[in-house]
Write a protein that binds this DNA or RNA. Structure first.
Lengths: 207, 207
DNA sequence: ATTATATGTTTACAGTGTAAACATATAATG
DNA sequence: CATTATATGTTTACACTGTAAACATATAAT
């Protein structure tokens, strides 16, 4: 009976989602479930059942449930940072770049609401794992600070870079989380215009 | 042995925190624990143990854990709404009132971080209880909308009230949550100035 | 051919929310 | 006053949780 004849280890078959490496399958499934039902409400047993493996199989790839959550956050940040770096490379004034960065990030959040919900709306239990997440978040903030610094330099202004970057971060998250969490139950007048307006508002000091 | 001789029902002894009605004691204790360790990580058993009653005693006052959480949120909103109504009654221009309201709310959040964490940073499991919370939140938003409407009227401006109110709400929450969650692990330059600056920024259109 | 390693499964345990049944202290009613 | 009803607690029980421990096997290394 134990003749489960494992597939010949074919290292990568990009085409088929079902045969993704189990590690990725776990992370994708967990992200969907965490986003839809909340981190604490989703059991390792249910993640396993959804995938079709035993609950303990997950522990071969992630030390525990919290590390699985952190891994989802890490992937989100890594994608955000990549998008930011690409956007910042494109030509334009510093202000244009900064505004494009905000657009890029908000659009990324809106088109990946599950990434956003799990990464930014899940309260991690305080502890060393949560602090590792904070450290990673700083790497994204570095891009924002740089963008602000460039705006200030270009205009010869003397701005508090940290404060300006925080205001931008805070406004971006506020907008994204409002649009994502209430998109179904609340009648937004014009999300696209609201996005433009908010971005314009918090960067107006650099005009 | 069952001679637990209940205290003679003294209806109100304001002085002693320990003899608050059990219902209030439960809510206070639950709020502290939820804020410190996260809603899902706190068990009814631990709330009971902390208070000194059996876990099931809680269910005589709250239908279940989720209703207990909602009750904490309701208290927060009711206090916020009261503060807003008081602030809006004081004399001044519409813009001054709106800005004072924002100050009042941010200060309330900062001085009651546990109320904030539980009410605004705890993701409720989706369902009818969560929707009741959204409905209550709208009652607070009504005050913001009114403040914005008055600003617009006073200046004879034609503004999108809903959008302006949302931007203000979003910025306020972003600031509060940033200050509260990172206050220990992150070196804020000058929170007070950042607060002033953000409030000024998002209300500048009404100057 | 044998051993080691990677990756899975099954079993077991302490802790969870809460339904059900039971206990008693105060209030209401005869 | 005696009796019943109600409010408020406790104890017990059950189906679920995260995960440690032990076991199994399929591939890689020797």
């Amino acid at each position: 009976m134990p003749l489960t004849k494992r597939a010949p280890t074919l290292r990568r078959t990009k085409s088929s989602r079902a045969h993704l490496p189990l590690r990725d399958q776990i992370r994708n499934t967990a992200r969907d479930l965490f986003a839809r039902e909340g981190y604490e409400s989703v059991s390792m047993r249910r993640i396993g059942a959804q995938i079709g493996c035993s609950p303990m199989a997950i522990y071969r790839h992630y030390e525990n449930k919290e590390e699985l959550l952190l891994s989802i956050c890490e992937e989100t940040f890594s994608r955000m940072i990549q998008l930011l770096d690409e956007t910042r490379k494109k030509p334009g004034t510093a202000l244009e770049k900064l505004r494009r960065c905000m657009h890029t990030i908000v659009d990324f959040h809106l088109s990946h609401p599950n990434h956003y919900k799990v990464t930014f709306m899940t309260l991690m239990p305080p502890g060393p794992v949560a602090e590792r997440k904070v450290a990673i978040a700083q790497r994204a903030m570095d891009r924002l600070r740089a963008g602000v610094r460039e705006c200030a330099a270009e205009k010869g202004m003397d701005v508090d870079v940290e404060m300006a970057a925080q205001i931008i971060r805070v406004a971006t998250h506020g907008l994204a989380s409002a649009l994502i969490t209430t998109s179904r139950c609340y009648p937004w007048k014009d999300p696209e215009r609201m996005k433009d307006e908010l971005i314009a508002t918090v960067t107006r000091q650099f005009e």
